[in-house]
Write a protein that binds this DNA or RNA. Structure first.
Length: 598
RNA sequence: GCGCUCGUAGCUCAGCUGGAUAGAGCAUCAGACUUCGAAUCUGAGGGUCGGGAGUUCGAAUCUCUCCGAGCGCGCCA
């Protein structure tokens, strides 16, 4: 047994601390200058496993400031590290890498820590500051289509990841219920209302939403109001019709999101900024004006493509150039109403006022040109105290057997999110959306996801988890005392001696499990949930490989050894660790971890 | 014209915030099932990291400049 078991729940952090301790010892020896900057010292897995378990760049990073050659410094550090109880071997390689091989007992204890922690393994405990993640925010004018899908899944997984990493997270949806588009929605719904009352409405006029999804809205209006709205002027019926239509659209959108396993804590109404308690948009502009960040002025017309109806006029401008933007931005339209940007500033100020200094927005690629001005606005309304990270999710190209699927919202024949989820399942949709960096374009081929499901990474990872459960089911023949209940099984396996886990493949698998906390930290810090998906794929791959190694060539490597319950228990502990991490990781992605694939 | 994002194996993509000989999957070729699930595994071939220059011990990663693709450029959201 090693002297400190709590450290082993995060081996990489613990080894970094040990390297830092070695460096401090060198400072005490006056082999290194006092106050040397050690912040860039890292401990990471080496590219090639033959180099050892872990590598540190300490010697290379510190060499210049220490005034020593990297390899000489490496030797001095190595000398200290060789005295460490965890360290089995230290090698110096290449330009000054220090490669560490740990005693296998460290990895075994790391595995035990992982099993004992269960679903809390790798969970961050440090009390981080609250973070607000805004995603989806689709206009409430119709059902969600596949274009919304990626942002929804990405934002949801990112929020899961941040929460798991220890941050208090609020998941938010901004309802764009104040612009011209919701008035169009109201007029479109009114048409369906007349239809529901038996009037012949003919073809849907140009400029209104033609989709059938408004038929039930018309019926609901007819039931609620009877014919009472027919004689009224538009100005009289529109606000009420709009309110009801938006409510029904949002109910539909929530259903769609639920089908994708996406949830929000807060649905924030844009209209509430203007009609709630006071005009927050006006107040925000007034404050900024008082601070000299808003002024009356003129803008030059855009270069290259000047709009036909360009009219040079004095207008209300936000001084975004003072905060890193390229040009100042208008806050009021020519008719005196606020621009979308103006209410968005007020909205983000509202977030800051609610205590969020860390804001994340998930936007579609077509809003990329909007990032600088919004970040400028967040700085301006928070006196530079709040920061906004905008994550852009790129286009999803929906294909069927290589052929693009046409999507036109105007024609009313767009592919809805619900159709895709019903066709391929939420697990496949979610994993495919996350098995790619958010800012890379994604080809999503419906035919491939179904037909080639055997080659689909989501099934590969899920199969890893299912296979592990299968091993547990079969193991009862050798270890009858193995509990069926997962928690009880984990409790038993966390206490099993692991000394006999010494196969290189087994050690590799333990290392992979031990890397999970480090992966979570990095993925959360970078706001990159796709890293979790790739890690899980690799972990599943290591597991499948070890499983197959126990084939006919090496039956002694099977997890279940008929006449050796002790060894079987040790290996079941390994399976438990892998299974547990797969389950937790898939949970973060919002994907099921099934017990069987049949 | 300006701005943002991207360019890595035939195809689809990773590359852990600057590290070692650039990695997976698909496809191709050659192998592994009477026993823990073959939805799996083992191996082989496949590269001017779009081109060029720079920064330093070290660059796919940072800077500049070209080439190419996508998105955006008051009074849409």
């Amino acid at each position: 047994m090693l002297e400190n078991t709590s450290e082993t729940s995060h081996v990489f952090a613990a080894v970094l601390a040990r390297v830092q301790a070695a460096l401090e010892a060198l400072v005490a020896d006056e082999s290194l200058p006092a106050g040397i900057d050690r912040s860039r010292v890292l401990v990471e897995p080496p590219r090639d496993a033959s180099h050892g378990d872990l590598a540190t760049n300490a010697a290379m990073v510190l060499a210049k400031e220490a005034g020593q050659k990297p390899r000489d410094l490496a030797e001095a550090i190595a000398e200290k590290l060789r005295a460490d109880a965890w360290v089995l071997r230290v090698d110096i390689a290449g330009p000054g890498f220090i490669n560490l091989t740990l005693r296998p007992a460290v990895w075994r204890e790391a595995l035990q820590a992982a099993i004992a922690a269960g679903s809390d393994y790798a969970r961050g405990t440090a009390a981080g500051s609250p973070v607000n993640v805004e995603y989806v925010s689709a206009n409430p004018t119709g059902p969600m289509h596949v274009g919304h899908c990626r942002g929804a899944v990405f934002g949801d997984a990112l929020a899961n990841l941040l929460a798991f990493a220890g941050r208090p997270v609020t998941r938010e949806y901004y309802i764009n219920d104040a612009g011209a588009q919701v008035d169009v929605l109201a007029r479109s719904a009114f048409l369906r209302y007349r239809e529901a009352l038996g009037q012949d409405i003919g073809p849907i006029p140009e400029g209104l939403y033609p989709g059938d999804y408004l038929v039930p809205v018309g019926r609901a209006l007819a039931e609620a109001c009877g014919p009472s709205l027919l004689d009224k002027a538009e100005a009289e019926w529109l606000p009420e019709v709009r309110r009801i239509a938006i409510d029904m659209m949002m109910a539909m959108i929530r259903d769609d999101l639920a089908a994708l396993n996406v949830r929000h804590d807060e649905f924030f109404s844009e209209r509430s900024l203007i009609e709630g308690d006071g005009d927050q948009v006006g107040a925000t502009i007034a404050t900024l004006r008082a601070e000299g960040k808003v002024y009356q002025g003129r803008l030059p017309p855009p270069k290259g493509a000047p709009p036909e109806d360009w009219e040079d006029r004095e207008q209300t401008l936000f001084r975004s150039t003072g905060f890193g933007d390229d040009i100042d931005r208008p806050l009021e339209k020519s008719d005196g109403s606020y621009t979308y940007f103006a209410s968005d500033i007020a909205y983000h100020k509202n977030k800051v006022a609610r205590g969020f200094l860390d804001l994340i927005d998930v936007w579609g690629a077509d809003h990329g040109g909007y990032i600088k001005r919004m970040q400028a606005a967040v700085k301006a309304v928070s006196d530079g105290k709040a920061a906004l990270d905008v994550k852009i999710v790129q286009l999803v190209k929906l294909l069927r057997a290589g052929q693009p699927v046409k999507m036109s919202k105007r024609a009313g024949d767009f592919v809805t999110l619900r159709e895709v989820v019903d066709e391929v399942g939420k697990d496949a949709v979610r994993f495919m959306m996350l098995y790619r960096k958010n800012d890379a374009v994604l080809d999503f081929d419906l035919a491939k996801v179904i037909e080639q499901s055997r080659d689909n990474p989501v099934f590969y990872v899920q199969y890893g988890h299912a296979r592990a459960q299968s091993v547990f089911r079969n193991a009862k023949a050798v270890v009858p005392e193995l509990p069926t209940d997962a928690a009880a099984r984990a409790a038993l396996l966390a206490a099993v001696p692991l000394d006999r886990l010494d196969d290189p493949g087994e050690i590799a698998l333990m290392r992979a499990v031990a890397q999970f906390p480090r992966l979570i930290e990095a993925a959360a810090a970078a706001h990159e949930p796709h890293r979790v998906a790739f890690y899980l794929y690799e972990l599943a791959s290591d597991f499948h490989a070890q499983y197959t190694r126990g084939g006919k060539d090496s039956p002694h490597l099977r997890f279940i050894i008929q006449d050796d319950p002790q060894l079987t228990l040790a290996r079941l502990a390994l399976v438990q660790g892998v299974s547990s991490v797969l389950s937790v990781g898939l949970g973060l992605l919002g994907v099921e971890a099934p017990d069987e694939m049949r």
